[in-house]
Design a protein around this nucleic acid. Sequence first.
DNA 1: TAGGTTGTTCTCACATTGAGTTGTTCTCAG
DNA 2: CTGAGAACAACTCAATGTGAGAACAACCTA
Lengths: 250, 250
Amino acid sequence: MNEQDFLAGYDPRNYPAVAVTVDVVALTIREGALHLLLIRRGAPPYEGHWALPGGFVRPDEDLSAGARRELAEETGLGGDRLRRVHLEQLGSYGSPDRDPRMRVVSVAHLAFAPDLPDPAAGTDAEDAAWLPVTALTSRQLAFDHARIIDDGLERARSKLEYTPLATRFLEPEFTITELRAVYETVWGHPLHAGNFHRKVLSVPGFVESTGASTERGGARGGPRAKLYRAGDARLLHPALLRPAREETVR
Amino acid sequence: MNEQDFLAGYDPRNYPAVAVTVDVVALTIREGALHLLLIRRGAPPYEGHWALPGGFVRPDEDLSAGARRELAEETGLGGDRLRRVHLEQLGSYGSPDRDPRMRVVSVAHLAFAPDLPDPAAGTDAEDAAWLPVTALTSRQLAFDHARIIDDGLERARSKLEYTPLATRFLEPEFTITELRAVYETVWGHPLHAGNFHRKVLSVPGFVESTGASTERGGARGGPRAKLYRAGDARLLHPALLRPAREETVR
DNA sequence: TAGGTTGTTCTCACATTGAGTTGTTCTCAG
DNA sequence: CTGAGAACAACTCAATGTGAGAACAACCTA
């Protein structure tokens, strides 16, 4: 910020009116499919469309605090379960015409959560729902939220490669197979079970054994699986390799 | 955004006063060292400190357009040379107290540019300068700009791994050695010349040969180097590996 | 012209990956 | 209770990629 800005700096009304909101792309895995928390709009613009949970940043709160608050309001989540949700900033969206009412800059966030209960009726989130991401067309979505969701999904896919955040989609204790299912769901690709197993255990700090095993084998048979919890690595070295998408041959 | 937000949605003055600015972490390489474009503040707060180039988003401009405009204003750059500068969004910074005057949310951007002339005297950027990043202490920097710069540097380091953006620090035609120097400068690590050469040429779409060579050999001898230009890949597969930093042993 | 420097190409040992196989433990159906 | 099928975990082996060093020719300066 330079000198002129400073001279104009004391009366907010000297500034162009810009509203700042936080929106949240909250992802979870249900029944083997990636789901997204959305809210059905009850008023124009985009009445009846689905929109990301979000709202205005409050004067005294940080951007990330605002995002976590919005997430709590719409999911009814609190305390420890809320704290275990991974939340990171995704990016800001501020095209002049993205909201027809006024200039709104939205700071989008990305959240990874274990399978959560449906948004509690009785909260102000009557029309909130977890929807499978594959069931969404951009036409059903309000504002530029289709774009934000696309960016969020791509970020999620790429974060699984080099961070241990896949564990955030699971309960604190999980099996390697459950972890693999997260990867397969988010990446949309089957993975080789043996190689995945070897890789996860060989990357330092990814997972650590609890010593325990599951009470029962899988629903359709198989031995009891060993249980693991997330390790203390924040970055995976070496990273997992996402199966290459088909490249356009040049 | 939900229903209540909509009901309040028509009069900007119903909103908390928030200003939105764009700041730019502009990086270039000069004399083998990574440099950063900074502006010396001429008025409080933080008078005499260095700050990132930036300013308010205009009512009719996109966030990225604002960032490019600020960059143009401070560097005196225009036309094709401005267009060749890589610009991407870095993240938004909005702690309630980051600016003592009022609530300011800054959308930071990251720019990679080839070695540029010093900011032209005569523009309004009298006190703009390219400074080596190693010469900066966080105490000399205004607001939370030290944090933003740190984030920008880490982003730059990591982007060189999996994108061909290192080429954006160079002129359109360059040698492999020049490209390697970019990596060594940004990563702060010497790289094995032979292995780097092999790697760059083996990753599809990273560089393509122009067929030409440099007019002369290096200043201290050696053969003429072949010239390359950036290929059309936007992502590098497989990525380059950044030499591992020393891990804290657990 | 000599000596040092640099761009480029090799070689080889080693680590990682992809794909498939094996053995064992478990659930379910009959 | 038993057999069939499923899943966890461990292995093998070929193919690929990497790190480290060496070779060699082209080029500069002195």
